[in-house]
């Protein structure tokens, strides 16, 4: 069941959280927990959504190329804003990791392409941190202290093009180690490994959504600016000027309406001039 907290917090059509998961068996617990609905018409990669909660999930298939392609596809299909958090969740092998333990990948390397990433704001109070090595084939040869997966690198390479590095996360549950063979892993095991970590993932999501909301505040163009754009013709440069100036104006005059600046204006340039006039000769008051 979705917790009441999760249910109530986010309500918008743009996704706040975009999940990229390799296998249906890895995704099932998330689909069920967040009550995601399958979106019909997506034949390339299956997509699941819950618009009320702001979650989108795509099943990429195994491998880096699939992960990269699915990430790009989800970004395009969902219209994910630059403040959306991107999460790659799945199982990983380890030499010495405890079976069933969840890790956050803070260094992800792709030895084949000699690429290295350091994704995500670190949540060390909630989850253990680890290095992940993304390989092209499943391998029983593993290095101490390092997780092995097949998607993280491809996912991060592309997710960081849609959101900032600090909002891109790779979480892995250890599925096999030197004492437990990977051949024993089946769909039921995978489902259970991920399902057992839902509470921890929920705690992580709480923090991630807070970060995302702060980024939204920083990046989102206020609705009232869009209204001004509709009233006058602004070039691209003038649009940027207006956004910058209006942000300053709003800080100085939080209780005034933008309509004050617009009502006497005849052109876009007039609007910008009105703001400049309001911001000049201002007596700086810090106290």
């Amino acid at each position: 069941m979705v917790s009441d907290r999760s249910k109530g917090e986010v309500s918008n059509v743009e996704p706040t959280v975009c999940w990229v998961v390799a296998l249906k068996s890895e995704a099932k617990p998330i689909i069920s927990y967040f009550e995601l609905d399958h979106q019909s018409g997506n034949n390339i990669f299956p997509i699941y959504r819950n618009d009320k909660l702001g979650h989108s999930l795509i099943i990429s298939g195994v491998g880096q190329i699939n992960a990269a392609a699915a990430t790009t596809y989800l970004a395009s299909e969902s219209g994910a804003p630059p403040w959306a958090a991107w999460i790659n969740l799945g199982i990983a092998g380890s030499m010495d990791g405890e079976i069933g333990k969840l890790y956050q990948g803070v260094k992800v390397i792709n030895p084949t392409k000699e690429k290295v990433f350091f994704p995500g704001y670190r949540f060390s109070k909630i989850v253990s941190l680890a290095e992940i090595q993304t390989l092209d084939y499943p391998t029983p040869v593993k290095k101490n202290g390092v997780l092995h997966d097949m998607e993280a690198s491809g996912f991060i390479d592309f997710a960081t093009r849609f959101s900032c590095n600090e909002l891109v996360f790779s979480f892995k549950v250890v599925s096999d180690n030197s004492e437990q063979d990977m051949k024993l892993i089946d769909k039921m095991v995978v489902n259970s490994l991920i399902g057992n970590r839902l509470q921890q993932l929920d705690a992580l999501l709480d923090k991630i959504i807070t970060l995302s909301k702060r980024e939204k505040q920083r990046l989102q163009i206020p609705d009232e600016v869009e209204e001004v754009f509709k009233q006058f013709h602004f070039s691209v440069t003038m649009k940027n000027q207006l956004i910058q100036r209006l942000r300053k104006w709003k800080i100085q005059f939080p209780n005034r309406s933008i309509s004050d600046l617009v009502k006497e204006a005849k052109t876009a340039a007039d609007v910008i001039r009105n703001i400049d006039d309001a911001l000049t000769d201002l007596k700086f008051d810090w106290t």
């Binding site: 990433f117 350091f118 704001y121 093009r161 900032c164 590095n165 600090e166 909002l167 970060l211 980024e215």
Partner: peptide, 8 residues
């Protein structure tokens, strides 16, 4: 690294 967020 590119696309880091200093503020976060």
């Amino acid at each position: 690294k590119r696309s880091q967020n200093f503020r976060i």
